[in-house]
Computed example of a mutant assay.
Amino acid sequence: MPMHARTTAVRRAVAAVAAVSVVALGAAACGGTTKKSTDSGSSSGNGSAATASANPAAATKKGLTIAYLPKQVNNPYFTISDNGGKQAVEALGEKYKEVGTSSGTDTAGQVSYVNTLTQQQVNAIAVSAQDPGALCTALNQARKNGVKVVTYDSDTKADCRDLFVSQASAEDLGRTEVQLLAKQIGGKGQIAILSAAQTATNQNTWIGYMKDELKKPEYKDIQLVKVAYGNDDAQASFQQTQGLLQQYPNLKGIISPTTVGIKAAAQYLSGSKYKGKVQLTGLGTPNDMRAYLANGTVQSFELWDPAKLGALAGYTAVALASGQITGAPGQTFTAGDLGSFTVGQDGVVVLGKPTVFDGTNIGQYHF
């Protein structure tokens, strides 16, 4: 968080910033608590207050080090997103680095990397959190030492970071995946969800909106029978898909809001008697899912451009470290070719609407 303002003049200037209208983002913020701090001076979790004034006209600082800490290195999704971040950070003349664990559930490993990056005195950390609370102590210590913290893809509790770069509105993502699957199964039947880790902030937030969507009258004939967890591991997700179909032989559809999970589920379904009978949708990359659209295993799925998400996290981190923004609602900044963005409620910046991919448009996308 920004440091305490020390003068009445600064407080007045900041109060003016707080008066800027806030872009409504639905419930995009993930994590258990919400950040109540604004530029008017309420405290955040690490004891500092959001009373420092942003200077949108400030020059971009040079020589900054922006470190990326994804949920899992060597995960194809994060390879794409972090490479997007690398391009953005280096285009601004800054130094990029990536560190992380090879497991998507090693929260202790993530904590250790945060501590190391703090000791190395990086200027900003862009982290995709494996757990909403496990990193908080380490991240707030980093912030006390002057490190800016941006979460992307998967948030922490809101008082443990400066900004969250959300791939899309969490509500949009959760509800649209139910809508896609409901259409594919004719509005009735048993369905299941194949998630990543049981503690994954983004997954749990999306699933919450899925369950809420299913309460609507139009889904009265759809029954959610189970939420399974594949831990963003291809083999485990494959086995979970197999287990779901053994346990629920009348299953009509699966939603997998994880790129690893949906690919593994499609792989299992495409080689089984359930191909074309059990529908599958969720979040996947066009390159991973192209063959499964072509052979009829999948009808449609959705995602955003992960490279743009990683790039936006980089631009956001540099803007924070340069003092152009502090993370207060209503502040705006420019993210290169991506355009201008506005900080929303709870310190959330949203990349945009998800894109639905099907046989009519997938040929236009290559990531």
Rank of each mutant, 00 (worst) to 15 (best):
M3K: 14
R6Y: 01
T7M: 10
T7H: 03
T8G: 03
T8K: 14
A18E: 10
A19S: 12
A27V: 07
A27D: 14
A28T: 13
S43R: 14
S43L: 11
A54M: 12
N55L: 05
P56W: 13
A59L: 12
A59H: 10
K61G: 07
G63Q: 11
G63K: 12
L64Y: 06
T65M: 10
Y68M: 01
Q72S: 00
F78W: 12
I80K: 02
N83K: 15
A88T: 08
A91T: 11
L92I: 03
G93E: 09
E98A: 12
E98R: 15
E98Y: 01
G100D: 06
S102H: 07
S102F: 07
S103M: 03
G104Q: 02
T116E: 08
Q119H: 01
Q119T: 15
Q119G: 13
Q120L: 13
N123T: 09
A124H: 05
I125V: 13
A126D: 11
A126F: 01
A126V: 15
L135F: 04
L139N: 08
T151S: 14
D155K: 08
D159I: 03
D159S: 13
F164Q: 05
Q167D: 06
A168G: 08
S169I: 00
G174T: 10
T176A: 07
Q179N: 12
L180M: 15
K183S: 14
K188W: 03
Q190M: 01
I191P: 01
A192G: 13
L194Y: 00
Q198V: 14
Q198G: 02
A200Q: 09
N202K: 04
N202V: 04
Q203L: 09
N204M: 04
W206R: 15
K211D: 00
K211H: 03
K211C: 01
K216L: 13
Q223S: 14
Y229F: 15
D232C: 04
A234N: 07
S237H: 06
G253F: 02
I254G: 08
I255Y: 01
P257L: 08
A264F: 00
Q267I: 11
Q267F: 03
S270N: 14
K277S: 13
K277P: 02
V278M: 09
R290G: 05
A291Q: 15
Y292V: 06
Q299P: 00
E302Y: 03
A311P: 02
L312P: 05
G314M: 05
T316G: 07
A317I: 09
A321K: 07
G323K: 04
A335G: 05
L338I: 08
G344A: 11
V350P: 05
L351H: 01
K353E: 10
P354R: 06
T355E: 04
F357Q: 02
T360E: 10
N361Q: 09
Y365N: 04
H366N: 15
F367S: 11
